[in-house]
Design a protein around this nucleic acid. Structure first.
Lengths: 109, 109
DNA sequence: CATCTATATAGCCATATGGCTATGGAATCA
DNA sequence: TGATTCCATAGCCATATGGCTATATAGATG
């Protein structure tokens, strides 16, 4: 039931800067300087965001000389998507049941 | 690009208690006392969680005498699901491109 | 070696979050 | 009316979060 990683994933997704970073990384690997570029934020602030994303398992880092290029890890994202999907299934079934129930009532009258 | 509601939705989903409450509400309307029942948490704490969920647009409240039954609103959840899905599309396309690229390279050798 | 580039880390600050207790208010019920 | 039930609100506390500046470290380069 409980899932600290899922907690961390949703929390990571709750910030617009981090979502933008993920969107950028969906296009391919990028260095910190590159990721920093679109934002009016300091470099340490970006590094902090990257740490949050890494903690959530959403990205991982490599190394290329002084650079620490980040790339996506899609699995954590999938866990989040799965939770919502399972939720939606349950929700949909509920309406199916309601539909059947209403149909039954209609039949009975 | 920015979306305060999406921020709020993901933030709301990042807490296990709130996800459990949503799962319960997927089964149908429930009062605060009913929602409280599975948890070792005080009533005001549950009310606070409900407020967070309501702020995120994930639930809404009705009234029945002293009771304040809550029910789901699926739309906000859908926004979150949509964001992830659009993300995944982009991500998948990237691999498609990579596949094509590799195929091209292979052809050329 | 000296320096420059790329990034991380430390530490500060203000605000948000998640828990609690205490209290208040509205309906119901005796 | 008075007590009880259901819930909200206020206020406190500890910790987390998101921003910053200043500084440290690692690798490249003159």
């Amino acid at each position: 039931m409980e899932s600290p990683l899922l907690d961390a994933t949703f929390a990571a997704l709750s910030d617009p800067t981090r979502r933008a970073i993920l969107a950028r990384l969906a296009l391919g690997e990028a260095t910190v300087s590159e990721l920093m570029q679109p934002f009016a934020l300091s470099q340490p602030t970006i590094s902090k965001h990257l740490k949050v994303l890494e903690y959530a398992g959403l990205i991982e880092g490599g190394r290329d000389a002084q650079r620490r290029p980040r790339r996506l890890r899609a699995e954590a994202m999938k866990d989040a998507a799965d939770w919502i999907e399972r939720f939606r299934d349950q929700w949909d079934r509920r309406f199916d049941n309601l539909d059947r129930h209403l149909a039954t009532i209609k039949k009975e009258t």
